[in-house]
Design a binder for these strands. Structure first.
Lengths: 206, 206
DNA sequence: GTCTATATTGTGATAGAC
DNA sequence: GTCTATCACAATATAGAC
């Protein structure tokens, strides 16, 4: 009996792990239950036994991916840090996370585009709250410490500069590095500092 | 006879137009020949008559989308312009183009990710050549006019800041604007200037 | 819980009439 | 060139044996 419960836990985890890999690589429409079953080393029927439908399996997978990426990242930034510290730490950790999960951003963006109404609930439960960050930016502007830049634009700029190379990976590899992977990885490592100083130079007063 | 040829031209164009809409919205895997036929107001058989397979229809569509976006954009930047002019013009025109085709960037990135080997040929025929831009950046750096920033990083930064809001549209709308479309469009309009000054401040020497 | 076998629908693709 | 009818297959999903 206990054995069964343990097996259930393991099988469910195995399925979710396989689903994560396949969905992230192929997207919802490109993935098939067969592919996921193969990847998990089981058969299709079990997928339905545990998750009832492809849709439900996908939802569970998407939540997993989203929650395993976003909250840990947000927690790297402590409230008491200076704006400069926050930006430096965030860019570095974000690029590190994406380096280890390079397909995730395009996956999330593609799927949110297919199904935008899923986002509000995810955001609410994930503890994302730009408010503190925004008021910090505003007070830095009012104190005359940095150039005036609308907080949401600055936030999008930080995300854009960090994420974009990963969603545009094929273009960058094809255009700059002749499809060489090592060169691309070097490029990504470089960006931690490049992006940080780029942002800080952009907002610092002369 | 002439009538037939004219009809053939029109039908082919109609199909390509419908295919463009459906593929861009749903992606290759999410699109079906049935949807495309419905959108074009014809039946599936005709699609195969004109393009033989879904794959071939997609390739034709992708080329169309790619070539109708990229070369016109590159041509807005004239060789004799100053670096500052180039960046200003490019960001403005790029955001304008994307505003009119907001789904295209995510479509291109998603499909290139599925099929990266398609890119080299597209690039070769599209006249993309970062070399001139790169040497201009390098000479500006050597003359001490701007801060030292690796040309390919600067180029990616320009693209990132312009494109990212469109691929992250659902996130931005959901996080900042409560899913309001007008607010998002206002945000996009603002970015033309925000992004330009952000970049110029980042590279200008104090 | 896990498997095999099967039902059912939707897909890309073709044949053949007009 | 355009249509209807149809094929072959892959997809999600379920039934039932173990």
């Amino acid at each position: 009996m206990i054995k069964m419960l343990e097996e259930k836990q393991n099988t469910e985890k195995t399925i979710l792990e396989a689903a994560k890999e396949v969905f992230v690589e192929y997207g919802f429409d490109g993935a098939s239950m067969q592919k996921i079953a193969d990847r998990a080393g089981i058969n299709k029927a079990l997928l339905h036994y545990y998750f009832r439908s492809k849709e439900k399996l996908f939802e569970a997978t998407f939540r997993e991916v989203f929650y395993s990426m976003v909250p840990p990242l947000i927690n790297t930034v402590k409230e008491e840090m200076s704006l400069e510290e926050k930006i430096t730490i965030f860019v570095e950790k974000y690029i590190d996370t994406l380096r280890d999960n390079p397909l995730v951003p395009l996956f999330i963006l593609h799927e949110l585009n297919r199904n935008p109404e899923n986002l509000p609930e995810l955001v609410k439960e994930s503890g994302i709250d730009p408010a503190i960050f925004f008021s910090q930016i505003n007070s830095e502007i009012e104190s005359g410490n940095i150039r005036p830049v609308p907080p949401h634009h600055l936030m999008i700029n930080i995300l854009a500069l960090s994420v974009f190379p990963f969603v545009a990976k094929p273009i960058i590899k094809g255009l700059f590095f002749n499809r060489d992977n090592d060169e691309f990885n070097k490029f990504i490592e470089e960006r931690k500092e490049i992006v940080t100083t780029f942002i800080l130079n952009a907002i610092k007063k002369p």
